[in-house]
Design a protein around this nucleic acid. Structure first.
Lengths: 240, 240
DNA sequence: TTCGATTTAGAACAGTGTTCGTAAAAGACG
DNA sequence: CGTCTTTTACGAACACTGTTCTAAATCGAA
């Protein structure tokens, strides 16, 4: 997964100074520890002091290798993106491939808690993001989707799958099976207690809201995305 | 600048039972101030001390009216949702109506900075969220979308439009027109500097990425959503 | 008035990201 | 080898944050 290093992505505050390492403390080691903390306690548990503590140093030491916490979070996010595996494009099955690639990205993201928030807070441009994007583009391009549609779709698909992963990651922060079931039941009860005269559809569709499992919700969302992009690709081709 | 606090104006229907107020401090006033701060400085500028300061008191005083900052943020979000206007359903134009309703929600959200993050962080269930949902359901239901699809779509559409609004709100935190243009140009340059041999599609599609204006991106995303839901509604109807 | 409940608000606690200043180590150069 | 300069290490401190504890002030009802 380690390929030739890409040029430094542009940051709003201008380029950073060069980093050289001395002993054990370096960028990769810091990202390693940060990712481990995110895996254990989520993004809320990630603090500069926390990372520094595991490296047996103080928080100020990190700032020689990382501009700030935002950049560290972005580095962790890009590290996670490196785990995604996307197949070579097969033109005839591009919609099926696109859907499974989106699911693969989703699964990798939720395997690392709420790390997907990192991509919502900033526009990530790390090397793995670039490489992953290229693979998504390849699938759509091979499927004959016009360039303009591919460009627009890439942005939205990435946003959507990150949002889905983030939403998913928020449900059980550290709760037991019983607790989330109890919360689930209380939501059900709350909907049922609403005045049916004012909210007839909401009350009438309670089951349609509460029944679907996470997998069905994700599957539906991915279908909406893929079929939506497919439809727009067709109409763009016809228009031309 | 800050005038002497006025006495509480009389409410239609008289004071509510069970809630006794003493001075000027109550839930609504706190939410008023919190929303004003979000409008001015975004969610990052919202702090309990900040709100308390504008009410000429200390942060501890707020906790008699609001459980914590999360709840306050949710209240602000629900207040904003109250501004959305959604038309009565017209069965023949349900897709057009759904799209414009989603756009209306998006526009109201971005008019209040990054408030949309509040709905990403928690599942909002306030009164205005309920009322807004009912109206979305009405449009889809009138269009003949099966209940199961409506239930699944509601969740995803809400997530998607909130994500789009949140992403949109992040671009200019407080930057000038020149600064965001400069950042924009540097991103363009960064893409152009990538090795075309490894990322041929990405480099070849730079314009497809950089050219579209925010309005075109939003329009595309909404089309994907509406046409995707439309396609799934049709196939669900056929399957039955 | 008296009583109890609620609201107010100062002080404090345990955190946070980040900066400053200093000390030391590494590399460059003669 | 001896300097000189650059870069890293890191304790201390700053300005914040959300929240809780505490006691006083104030109100509604009896």
């Amino acid at each position: 997964m380690t390929a030739e290093p890409l040029p430094e992505p542009p940051r709003p505050g201008g380029p950073r100074k060069g980093t050289r390492k001395r002993r054990t403390l370096n960028r990769d080691a810091i990202v390693d520890v940060a990712l481990a903390i995110v895996d254990e306690h989520g993004l809320a548990g990630l603090s500069m002091r926390n990372v520094a503590g595991r490296l047996e140093t103080g928080p100020a030491s990190l700032y020689a290798h990382v501009a700030n916490k935002d950049e560290l979070t972005e580095l962790v996010y890009d590290r996670v993106l490196g785990e995604i595996e996307i197949p070579e494009p097969d033109p005839k099955n591009w919609q099926k491939q696109l859907k499974s690639a989106l699911r693969a990205m989703h699964d990798v993201l939720i395997a690392h808690r709420d790390i997907s928030y990192a991509s919502l807070a900033r526009i990530p441009l790390g090397p793995n993001m670039i490489a992953t994007s290229e693979k998504f583009l390849a699938i759509m391009h091979a499927g004959g989707v016009p360039d303009r549609v591919v460009g627009l779709a890439m942005d939205f698909l990435s946003l959507a799958v990150n949002s889905l992963a983030y939403e998913q990651s928020l449900y059980p922060p550290e709760a037991s099976e019983e607790e989330i079931q109890g919360y689930y039941d209380s939501v059900h009860e709350y909907f049922a207690s609403l005045p049916a005269a004012r909210f007839p559809l909401l009350v009438g569709m309670i089951d349609a809201f509460m029944e679907p499992e996470p997998e069905e919700r994700l599957n539906f969302a991915l279908d909406v995305l893929v079929q939506g992009v497919g439809a727009l690709a067709e109409s763009a081709k016809r228009r031309r």
